[in-house]
């Protein structure tokens, strides 16, 4: 079952169908070219995008427009990239930012 809203009573049918391949934590997925990485991952059923640096608690999309920085991931080796503001491209390599090994709660 798809999570995409392919037909909408007011907005009509989705016109984009140019799917590209990318990886998230070494697994392959398909997304629409230039849609946000956050949307592509959610469409693939992925909600957890990173783990908190200190506590390791799982985090996902919160504000979806770049304000909260909760969705930050590594894209092609660059850390701290907001998935909600990053257009998906063919061959993109995406990794979760995770808990830092040395982190201990006070």
């Amino acid at each position: 079952m798809t999570r995409r809203i392919l037909d909408h009573p007011i907005l009509g049918k989705m016109e984009d169908n140019n799917y590209v391949s990318f990886t998230f934590n070494q697994k392959g997925y398909k997304g629409l070219e230039n849609e946000s990485l956050a949307a592509a991952l959610l469409a693939n059923g992925i909600r957890t995008l990173r783990h908190h640096e200190e506590s390791g608690s799982p985090r996902g999309i919160y504000c979806n427009i770049g304000h909260c920085y909760e969705c930050r991931v590594s894209v092609d080796g660059q850390q701290g990239i907001r998935a909600c503001l990053t257009p998906v491209k063919e061959g993109m390599t995406v990794e979760s930012d995770g808990q830092l090994p040395s982190s201990k709660r006070r």
Binding site: R47, T48, L49, P58, R59, G60, I61, Y62, C63, N64, I65, C68
Partner: peptide, 8 residues
């Protein structure tokens, strides 16, 4: 994960 702002 799965909790988001209503605007999101």
């Amino acid at each position: 994960p799965g909790v988001m702002s209503v605007g999101a």
